[in-house]
Design a protein around this nucleic acid. Structure first.
Lengths: 223, 223
DNA sequence: CCCCGCTTTACGGTTTCCCGTAAAAATAGG
DNA sequence: CCTATTTTTACGGGAAACCGTAAAGCGGGG
């Protein structure tokens, strides 16, 4: 089994229990291997590498609450990317509240994760299984992810789409959005193109109005 | 210190750590005092009461994941209401991911809670403090709740407002909403009244369009 | 160079929404 | 019962959004 495991998780209520799971797997407990900030996680991995005692596994959350202590790296995704560049062979297991299959799967692929376990009922057991599988050099996408019907594919919004939606939420009219896009050299910027784009999105997602679109974006964490 | 404490929390990753916190407070550990479903929590409280060994404290989450096993009580709020009716003197402490001050405060008052602690950085310590204070027969609203600027007061939406907004998100036009209200005997149902109401809400909240309103509702968990 | 297909813009008609005003209905007080 | 006030509805003008079509721009292949 792994000997050096780092846990990056900002909630003590969760961090504690991951420790406990590790202990049940016979992984030695060490207070230094539990960190509450991404920056701290990164520097510990760096230090361990320099000392020729690199970590074997990183268990990390995705979202970290902001607080008074400003961080360079402020979320799990950034942390993982930074760590991958530093120590490519480090196994990475994500343990997150996000439990929608489509979203988890996308992260799993994009970040080339070794494991993904959602927090939820029976998460401790799930975590244990994942660690064992990763230790066998296999990858593990938890079976407990929720497959929402018709939600398998998240609609692909372009950066321009996000800009448009953001502008709407700033209270801009479509004409103002057109001017904004032109000013920021985002093409196409024509009023028609905005109308057309919103139209296709609505049609693709079976919506009648923009309000539904906004709700969709909020629900899926797009904005 | 309390002797009989019940924990209702569906995530083992959290449940474990609450156990640990209790142990640190010298509260005897007993596997039966940790339940993963609201129904189970309710029946345990009922049973303890019948046996003349009632619980002194209930620590409960608010949201419980749905899964295969159907429940009568499916969320923390319903559980608390049911429990209050059954055993009014039971101390109740909510331990939830919801960390917005205004919302937590509303729940705190509405449910007449003895304590409210948000999951977050330093939540274990926070929990410990809350339990000690509750034990002194005082109430405790955690200091770690986030006070969003200008967000102290959540706008008071009436049930009719919620209906209107829900209809919008179903893709209805204002005229259709008017017909819907009439059909369901919600007054006023006139088209003008809907326009006027949305208008006031937008003015009160400084919005230019309905999309902003939807985003606001989503952000505040109103819908 | 032109032609072709594709994307973007321009424009007009229609619908929905927005907003003010006035009429009608409900409510309250005497 | 009548009047005053508020609430609700009805209506109409104007703005924004919606939607189809036509024109203009743009790139690659012949």
């Amino acid at each position: 089994m792994f000997q050096k495991v780092l846990i990056a998780e900002d909630f003590p209520s969760v961090n504690y229990s991951v420790q406990r799971t590790l202990e049940e797997l016979g992984i030695a407990h060490n207070i230094k291997n539990h960190v509450y900030y991404c920056d701290h996680a990164f520097s510990r991995i760096q230090k361990a590498l320099n000392e020729n005692e690199p970590y074997e596994l990183l268990i990390t959350d995705l979202s970290f609450d902001d607080d008074a202590t400003q961080q360079q790296i402020s979320d799990g995704v950034s942390l993982i990317k930074a760590v991958r560049a530093l120590q490519p062979d480090l196994k990475i297991l994500v343990f997150s509240i996000e439990n929608r299959f489509a979203i988890a799967q996308k992260l799993f692929k994009d970040l080339n994760l070794n494991g993904y376990v959602p927090k939820g009922r029976s998460d401790a057991q799930d975590l244990q299984l994942a660690i064992e599988i990763i230790h066998q050099n296999k990858r593990h996408l938890s079976k407990n992810l929720k497959k929402v019907p018709g939600d398998e594919i998240i609609y692909q919004f372009t950066p321009r789409d996000i800009t448009i939606i953001t502008q709407i939420l700033d209270g801009a009219t479509q004409k103002e959005i057109s001017e904004y896009l032109e000013k920021n050299n985002i093409t196409p910027s024509g009023l028609s193109s905005i109308e057309k784009r919103l139209n296709t999105i609505r049609r693709d997602l079976n919506f009648n109005n923009n309000q539904q679109l906004i709700a969709y974006c909020k629900d899926h964490g797009i904005i």
